[in-house]
Design a protein around this nucleic acid. Structure first.
Lengths: 106, 106
DNA sequence: TTGACATGCAGGTATTTACCTGCATATTAC
DNA sequence: GTAATATGCAGGTAAATACCTGCATGTCAA
């Protein structure tokens, strides 16, 4: 997993919208996806290229169409690497801050 | 939670490194953090400002020092909104893609 | 009180990003 | 075969980003 590509891919509202659209209906074509975006098809393609580079979306060509599918694996890996780690320490991290704030008041 | 700010904050290796540093030792000063980064202090400050804007880091002033603390809450919210959603559909999404690939072979 | 230290603030620049337009190619339908 | 459709590819621009340097301010300690 390339955390940089995954987070950068997720760091744009258009690309998150694309993932949501595919979550509603997987396997849509480029044209179908574009109907729900307010930009030129070519611009959407560039966003999709980044999602593909981050391995968040896989595509299959069928005739002249290109079908798009979500790949949830990188998101899971992001969770394992970046969320669970902090999640485990969540209470103690908040405890550190609370202690510091109380120290200030005294 | 502002998903855009959180993902954009996470979409940079320096800022992820800062979070890792704070995970190792919470409550560090700006100078301490800078010792582990290969850039000017002012540049690190700009990265920290983004982490603060995303609410991933909170700070407390103590005398002439500024202490930095991780806030794990936004990461948890990202997980709830962006990871669990796809996680729940993980198997069915992969099923869609598998079906499509098999359809191509026939 | 003065020098050292920690941080803040104000620009300046090179690179990346997110759009666009115009045109080319490939597939399908009549 | 030809027109319509779906996508690919090549540039061009404005804004955002990630750095930097230089200087100002505030705090501590001798």
């Amino acid at each position: 997993m390339d955390a940089d590509k995954v987070f950068k891919a997720l760091g744009d509202p258009t690309r998150r919208r694309l993932l949501d659209l595919l979550c509603e209906k997987n396997g849509q074509t480029l044209s179908q996806l574009c109907e729900n975006l307010d930009m030129a098809r070519q611009s959407a393609t560039q966003h999709i290229d980044l999602l593909e580079a981050a391995n968040l979306v896989s595509t299959v060509k069928r005739g002249r169409e290109k079908l798009h599918f979500i790949n949830p694996v990188p998101l899971h890996e992001v969770y394992e690497r970046w969320v669970r780690k902090f999640e485990r320490q969540r209470l103690s991290l908040l405890h550190d801050l609370k202690q510091e704030l109380e120290g200030e008041d005294q």
